[in-house]
């Protein structure tokens, strides 16, 4: 049986939630770029399998259309694939020509797979030569706050990625959590009490509580 890991160098430890996002310097469609250039902003760092492929094109169009909303949320987009800078340039120019949409964010040309391996973006069981549809949400302190991995067949939901960033920012700003399917404006979850005394007091507070551990409030 073929070993899917054969020929692929060890990835080491893939960064996970709460880890520092590894810095890198690489060529991009906006010139030489470092992840550290984004400090102070949230970053949606995402990989796609290859330029000039249909699902990736739809994703780029969706990211580009939502770019103003990401920027309003102090969030920058950063793409990556294992393609050359010339392939990237040719593809983004083609998208502009064929779809009338300028790609307003940089795309890293990771032809030597250096960054992709560092971030664990290659899924050898699926492809040894292309990155999967990975998303790393990185906060202004360069800490990884969320990860999403999709297979090559399935385009991502860009609205969900924006919702995720907004939810993380809301949690940070108000020290709350967000429930399933939360949307901005919906009630948020008050963190459950961690002592008996706090649990008893919780029900006396001005929250919408089903029980001591399940309280919500409007922001």
């Amino acid at each position: 049986m073929e070993n899917p890991l054969e020929g692929l160098e060890p990835q080491g430890r893939i960064p996970r939630i709460g880890d520092p996002a590894p810095n890198f310097e690489a060529e991009s469609t906006f010139g030489n770029i470092q992840l550290a250039d984004f400090r102070g902003s949230w970053v949606v760092f995402f990989s796609h399998p290859a330029d000039f492929t249909p699902v990736c094109t739809t994703e780029f169009l969706a990211f580009a259309r939502r770019h103003p909303d990401f920027r309003k949320s102090n969030t920058e987009l950063l793409g990556l694939s294992i393609d050359s800078i010339f392939a990237h340039l040719s593809w983004v120019r083609n998208i502009e020509e064929k779809f009338g949409c300028r790609i307003p964010f940089p795309v890293v040309a990771d032809i030597d797979r250096r960054v992709a391996l560092c971030y664990g973006m290659i899924m050898p069981g699926e492809s040894k030569t292309e990155t999967a549809r990975c998303v790393f949400i990185i906060d202004p302190n360069a800490v990884i706050r969320a990860l999403i991995y999709y297979p090559m067949t399935t385009g991502r939901n860009v609205d969900e990625i924006l919702r995720l960033v907004t939810a993380l920012q809301t949690s940070d700003a108000h020290m709350v959590a967000t429930p399933a399917n939360w949307q901005p404006g919906d009630p948020v979850i008050v963190p459950p009490p961690r002592t008996q005394e706090a649990a008893a007091e919780r029900l006396l507070e001005n929250y919408d509580c089903k029980d001591w551990y399940f309280c919500q409030k409007k922001l």
Binding site: G31, I33, Q34, A36, D37, R71
Partner: peptide, 12 residues
């Protein structure tokens, strides 16, 4: 210009 573009250009 976005701050990240400025930082990258300043370095260059």
């Amino acid at each position: 210009l976005p701050l990240f573009r400025v930082r990258a250009a300043l370095r260059e």
